[in-house]
């Protein structure tokens, strides 16, 4: 019998997850502000010796192949760009959580983080290539964090993948979200949202985590971003980077068209870009050696 996650249990799970660092938290707050500047990111990185060291290690890693070593945070941040810095900060403080094996989904260690990176790049590219009026940087960050709830409920779902798959193919459950809810009492978006609140993530990111499978249910002001993450998530799965048994077993909400104009040609280009950019980004992140 699978143990259900009631509200008390969810609270306990969330409490057992380490808080993100103060600097990562502030970085996410700053970058969610529409009028922030790269200098704000630079100043924030400078306040955290650990993050500074990681940023410098990444920029000087073989992946970037710089001729001369960069030693200043200003140059490193402007060279890497905001998205890479955010990826480093998240990996630095939530890497263990996002890198863990998702036994409940029959996904090996590292699959969730790869999916997150692909979804982040895809969400960003959807925004850029469709010309949608929103921040590609924020779409990227929301993509990185959207599935964090899977890491929270995966252990409870252990051994349920065949049942979940069967529930969907027999139309007993509409999609994997519904199957999760039936099996353990909460789905990964609700669990992720609870963690987002505990971590005091900006509301935009919390909403993307909560509604990335049901974008129409998000409040109107958050909907464009949530749809971008919804599409980014789908594109990551279509490209072969899901998180195991749930891959592709979610519904596409075609009403994205109210916010994001994308045709087959743009989509093909987005998928192509995701393949190229993913190799670059994952190389630069992994290449920089041991996580501190």
């Amino acid at each position: 019998m699978v143990k259900k996650i009631n509200p008390d249990e969810l609270e306990k799970i969330v409490a057992s997850i380490p808080m993100i660092s103060a600097s990562a938290s502030r970085l996410l707050q700053i970058t969610a502000q529409p009028d922030h500047e790269l200098m704000d990111v630079v100043n924030l990185v400078k306040t955290d010796a650990n993050l500074t060291a990681r940023v410098l290690k990444v920029v000087n890693s073989a992946a970037y192949g710089l001729v001369s070593k960069i030693t200043s945070v200003d140059r490193a941040v402007s060279y890497l760009g905001e998205q890479v810095v955010v990826s480093i900060a998240i990996e630095n403080c939530a890497g263990e959580l996002l890198g863990k094996e998702l036994a409940g989904y029959e996904a090996a260690g590292g699959e969730l983080w790869k999916h997150d990176l692909r979804a982040a790049i895809a969400a960003r590219e959807v925004v850029i290539q469709s010309g949608a009026d929103m921040s590609p940087d924020l779409a990227f960050t929301a993509g990185l964090l959207h599935d964090i709830g899977k890491a929270l409920i995966s252990d409870y779902l252990r051994g349920t993948a065949p049942e979940a798959v069967e529930m969907i193919s027999s139309h007993d459950s509409l999609d994997y979200l519904a199957a999760e809810e039936k099996l353990v009492g909460v789905d990964h978006t609700i669990a992720g949202y609870a963690l987002a609140q505990a971590w005091q993530l900006p509301e935009e990111l919390a909403m993307a985590i909560r509604y990335h499978h049901e974008p129409a249910q998000a409040e109107e002001i958050y909907r464009p971003l949530v749809y971008a993450v919804h599409l980014g998530d789908s594109i990551a799965m279509m490209g072969g980077y899901g998180t195991g048994s749930d891959s592709m077993r979610y519904k596409l909400d075609a009403n994205y068209a109210d916010y994001i104009q994308i045709n087959a040609n743009i989509l093909a280009n987005v998928m192509l870009t995701v393949d190229t950019e993913f190799d670059k980004l994952s190389e630069s992140l992994s290449d920089s050696g041991e996580k501190s």
């Binding site: 279509m238 592709m248 045709n263």
Partner: peptide, 12 residues
Amino acid sequence: ANVMDTNDTFQI
């Protein structure tokens, strides 16, 4: 494969 309820655009 396709995601569920896919529209034409996403039927890659």
